[in-house]
């Protein structure tokens, strides 16, 4: 990265290094959110729709896990994936996959907890109709997820915001390797430590702009969707 260029020049010139960093950041965050969606939404639905002993504890635990400290998760994944750790033979430490794993762990509780709330609220609303229509369990879960889709997208956005803004976990498990595991946030941390504050601020502005753009897109999609199906 050309550290002499100002942030504005960097953005205008579409510096290929910056583009690579942005793409990697998006790839890591979006992959983590996808994994979190695949695990978290069914998990949230399961907890919402079933009654079992210790369910209250499970909900409290899930809500508490939304506040998992990223460094702790980073450290745990680091110890797990280290060559001397139990999964060391995978050779995943200091790779983008390792960052995805760490962020998926951070994001899944957020998605699961918000999905649980959404689906449970919807279930309260639909319960009588479902009983009267004699809706089977599979169609029931599918319908609740589908009809809660706009709220679930908001849950996914919350997860995306968390992962895109996160630096503590990925810098530990990714190693902030130039051109390989350097993301927006770890690049900001690095440029700050180099005293290159204008570039760090520029990268920060780009990051915030991307997060705003994605949220705007989701908002627009939601508004359009609700007009036809809300």
């Amino acid at each position: 990265m050309n550290t002499d260029a100002s942030a504005l020049q960097l953005v205008l010139a579409v510096d290929p290094t910056l583009v690579a960093i942005v793409l990697l950041s998006l790839m890591v965050s979006l992959s983590a959110v996808l994994i979190a969606a695949v695990i978290g939404i069914p998990l949230g639905a399961l907890i919402a729709l079933t009654r079992f002993p210790g369910r209250g504890m499970a909900i409290v635990a899930l809500n508490a896990l939304m506040g998992l400290p990223p460094v702790v998760v980073g450290l745990a994944v680091f110890l797990l994936l280290s060559r001397s750790g139990p999964l060391g033979s995978l050779g995943m430490l200091f790779t983008p996959q390792a960052m995805i794993v760490a962020q998926a762990i951070l994001v899944t509780p957020i998605v699961a907890a918000l999905a649980r709330q959404t689906i449970e609220d919807l279930w309260e609303e639909y319960r009588d109709e479902f009983a009267a229509m004699n809706v089977g369990p599979v169609q029931r879960i599918g319908t609740l997820i589908w009809d809660g889709r706009f709220s679930l997208v908001t849950a996914l956005l919350a997860g995306f915001g968390r992962s895109a803004a996160e630096v503590g976990a990925i810098i530990i498990v990714g190693g902030n390797i130039d051109g390989f595991t350097r993301t927006m946030t770890t690049a900001i941390a690095l440029e700050t430590s180099k005293g290159n504050l204008p570039l760090a601020v520029g990268l920060g502005i780009v990051l915030i702009a991307i997060i705003i753009a994605i949220n705007a897109l989701a908002w627009w999609a939601r508004r359009t969707g609700e007009r036809y199906a809300g």
Binding site: M27, L30, S31, L34, L90, G91, P96, Q97, I100
Partner: peptide, 14 residues
């Protein structure tokens, strides 16, 4: 969702 996940992960496949 599963297909999209698989695609994303395959970009980083071992």
């Amino acid at each position: 969702i599963l297909i999209a996940t698989a695609l994303c992960l395959s970009l980083f496949s071992p």
